[in-house]
Every structure is written in C-alpha cells, then in structure tokens.
Design a protein around this nucleic acid. Sequence first.
DNA 1: GTGGTCTAGACCACC
DNA 2: GTGGTCTAGACCACT
Lengths: 146, 146, 146, 146
Amino acid sequence: MNTPLNGPAAREPAIRFHITRGSGLPAYRQLVDQVRQALSLGLLAAGDRLPSVREVVAEVTINPNTVHRAYQVLEADGVVEARAGLGTFVTSVAPPSATPEHQMELQEDLRSWAERARRSGMSAEAISALIAVTFPNPAHQRQSSE
Amino acid sequence: MNTPLNGPAAREPAIRFHITRGSGLPAYRQLVDQVRQALSLGLLAAGDRLPSVREVVAEVTINPNTVHRAYQVLEADGVVEARAGLGTFVTSVAPPSATPEHQMELQEDLRSWAERARRSGMSAEAISALIAVTFPNPAHQRQSSE
Amino acid sequence: MNTPLNGPAAREPAIRFHITRGSGLPAYRQLVDQVRQALSLGLLAAGDRLPSVREVVAEVTINPNTVHRAYQVLEADGVVEARAGLGTFVTSVAPPSATPEHQMELQEDLRSWAERARRSGMSAEAISALIAVTFPNPAHQRQSSE
Amino acid sequence: MNTPLNGPAAREPAIRFHITRGSGLPAYRQLVDQVRQALSLGLLAAGDRLPSVREVVAEVTINPNTVHRAYQVLEADGVVEARAGLGTFVTSVAPPSATPEHQMELQEDLRSWAERARRSGMSAEAISALIAVTFPNPAHQRQSSE
DNA sequence: GTGGTCTAGACCACC
DNA sequence: GTGGTCTAGACCACT
C-alpha cells in the first residue's frame, strides 16, 4: 500500500498519465489502461488517490470530459470510487504480483534482451513487432467490465 | 521475394490477418499494423501479394470496406501498390533486420523471460504491463505518413 | 492566415467546393484538387479551417463519407490536420507564388487570350483541347503522397 | 482532311494515345477524351483511321479490353465507326475551328503567357490552378453521349 | 476475378 | 457541434 493518508489536496497523485496521440487508441481508453497497468504492477494500491480531473488536464492537454469519462469507466468496473469533494480513490485490491525488487530485475532483463536484439540488427520497429508476434493477445486488449 | 514461384492463384497469401475485437484499436489499423510488423520482421517482402480484400473478408469476418481502407492507408504510405484486376503488392523494401534464425532465438529468449516472470508470481496482465512500461512508445503507435 | 479574427463560428469557410458530376473524376478527388489548388494560389493558408464535413454536405449534396475521404487523403499528405470537435485545419505552408494582384492580372490576360481564340473560330471544346495539348501533364494529375 | 487513303495497314495512325496513371480519370475515358480533343482541334478528321487495339496496347501498356471499350463508347456516340477487318474510322465531321496556323499562334501565345506567369514566381501547380480557376467547367468534363 | 467509388445510416470519441 | 469507424450494398473500371 502506498501511504494512504487523509486531507483532500495534501499529497501528490500516485500516478501520472500520458497520452499518445498518434495511436488509434481513444484517449479515455489510454487513461483506463494506464490505471489498470499501474494496479497490476502494484504501483497503485487500494486507497490511493487518482489525480483530479483538473490535474490531469493540466498535465496532458485533454478535455476534462474525456478524463471524467475514463474515471467513470473505471468506477463502473469497480476499480475506483469517486468521493465527492475528495477525489477518486482506488478500491480494488491489486492482484498479487512479484516483489518490486523482482519486477525491477525482470525489467532490467527485458531491457538487456532488447539491447541484444538491437545489436543483432533489429530496428525498434522490428523489436516491437517481435514482441507483438510473441504475445498475440496482450491483456490490455480486453473489453471493459472485468 | 518470399515465394516467387507458381501461377497467379497457385500460392497462398504471404500474410494472414487476425482482428482482436475487444481492443480499442480500430480494425483497419490492426490490419495496417500487422502488415508493417510482418514487413519489419522480413515475413513480407517487396513483390509479395497481400491477400485480396475478398480473401481477407472470408478469413476474418470484416467488411470489405474496412479491409480496403487498411490497404489504402498502406498505399498512401508507399508500403503497397494496388493494381486493379491483379491485387495489392508490397513495394517497400524491408529494412535489414536480424536473420530469421536469430529472430527465432530472440523470440525463444523472450518467451523464457515471460515464463520466469510468471513463475515469480506475475499475472499475464502484469507481464503485459511491465512490457508496456519498459517500452513506452512502441513503433506501431505512430501516425501515418509525414 | 487569411481571416484571423472573430470567434469560432463567426467566420465563413475559407473555401467553397463545387463538384462536377459529369466529369470522370471521382468526387473526393475533385475536393482534394480544389484544396490543393486554393493552397497553391494562396487562397488558403496555414491555420485556415476547412468547412466541416457537414457544411460541405449541405453545400454540394454529397455523402459525408465522400467528403471525409477527401479530408483523409489531404491529412495523409500532410496538407491538413483534423481535430475532433474543432474541425479540419490547413497545416502546410503555401509555396510562394505571385502576388494576388499579379495573379489577377495574369488571369485577365488568360481570359483575353481565350476571347481571341474564340473570335478566331475556336469552340470552347477546342480551346480546352488546345490548353490540354499545351500543358500535357498538369499538376493535378499526380498521385497522392510518395 | 488528313490524307485518307485506302489499304488496311498501309499508313500510320492519325493519333497517338497516352495514359496518365496517376490521374483519377479512368483509362478508357482518357482515350475517349483524346480522340475528341484531336477532333475538335482538327488533328483528326472524318475518314481518319484510329490505331488498332493492338497498336494502342503496344504503345501504352493497357488491356485490350479497355481500348476496345473506349472505341465502343466513341462508336456509340457516333464519333467513329468500326469496319470489320479494316479498323476504326472517324465519321463525325470536325466542327469548324481556327486554321492550323492560327492555332499554332495561339498556342505560342499561351506558352509565353505561362512563361510570364512562371517568371513572376508561380509554380507549375499554381499555373495549373490558375487555369483551372479561370475555366471552371472545361469541355472535357461533359458526360458521354453528345 | 481484382481494386475503386459512392451512398446510406448507425454508433463512437472528443470539445 | 466536431471528426472517426464500421457495416451494407450497389455499381464501375481493369485484367
């Protein structure tokens, strides 16, 4: 759990969003996916507060309605809960994963794998493609409603 | 060229498509991405013929217009060339990549990496998330053309 | 920019389209050509907003999809940029051309040339044909993109 | 009239075709238009023989059926007449136009006009656009069936 | 048979 | 309101 204290605006958000415009993925969906990813990696835990709509808008240049919609989807899926005047809070418990240390280790292994691939002549596109081919149906491709 | 033999209708298509409905990615975009991925992995080469629109339709249950749209995007990007009455052909040369053997080796390494991750307690979602976090802006997220 | 004043809905579109049904040229292509012509004549400049799809539909009696297709081609060629909820905007800078006054002068010369041709017995068809023969490959006959 | 002699294959064709692939205009339509233009300029006259389908195919890389179709359209419009074993011959009389000398003079004037336009900074595209704007509905944009 | 264009209409995402 | 995607189906052009 990530220091779940009280007081409305007292701490900085537990997650920072980013939108990739070029991708075909709708913006609201990118936000939803990022929350879910952070959850499954333990970067976000029950009780954590999502940044307010305004904070997100200030950060990523997006329409407030779009952020709001993403939060609604997450709430409908039972992942977060909006509390009037306080903000939006994670409610679902993160599924057990590897320890943060182990995850970092795995991430390092993945990076060095990519480095090897690049040294053997593969472009960034090719490496991406190889990953896509190896894991044909990644988890982020599911529908909403868990 | 990959399969330069036989008469026009004698050889099977150089690529087979698949659509993931649940993903937020538009179907036509998935087709486009799959062609580009195949190209960057050397699975598709200049001169190869893409399956006809009708063949794709028969295979993946999608509207002909949607397939056509994907092919149009690829043509606008200079990746393929459509010739009425003949079909749609790859024109762009694949950038040099690793040898097929080396690619298979790398793919095997990637699979065993994922296996290790899973054994250390990570769910498929978590593994996907870890990959997404490690490679923030994969190549397939670019916009078309300039 | 041509008309940089006023609020969003206050100014009239920077270009008006017209479709010639009888010509063999596809409608979407006529729209594309008209935008590019206006651009090369300086009638349209970076920042200008094209009429919305619905506006065009109301003006020329054409299917929204066809207009959309034209705008898509222009976007793929980097000429315009579509922003959902806002409209479609010219992005490419017009190449330097003659001054508007000079262009009007040249146009006047061209008109009087045609008048002379007509007085010497040539029909409108013949004059058209003479122009076509004199400029065999006009710019509007190019393919899109690379 | 352009030396209308006899004997099937004895003289060279009175017109040479060219196809612009990039243009949206269908190939058959380009052939039709070229015949009509030549006619209205007096380059083709009643009795002249069009090149045979084979000759056209050898010249412009096009499917025989497409050439055939163009000739059929012209025949349906009463412009030409196919005579079995002999070829296709122009039947319609050319409308009166300017004398060849006068036409050449006018063409020269047009060329020098374009030269002036170019010297004042206009690109080839801009010149094309200016012509298109000045003559909004050129004759070649009519439907078939005179 | 191939690709290409157009219409019609529904539904989604974004501002 | 804006643009974007998809379906359905008709018709055309080309080989």
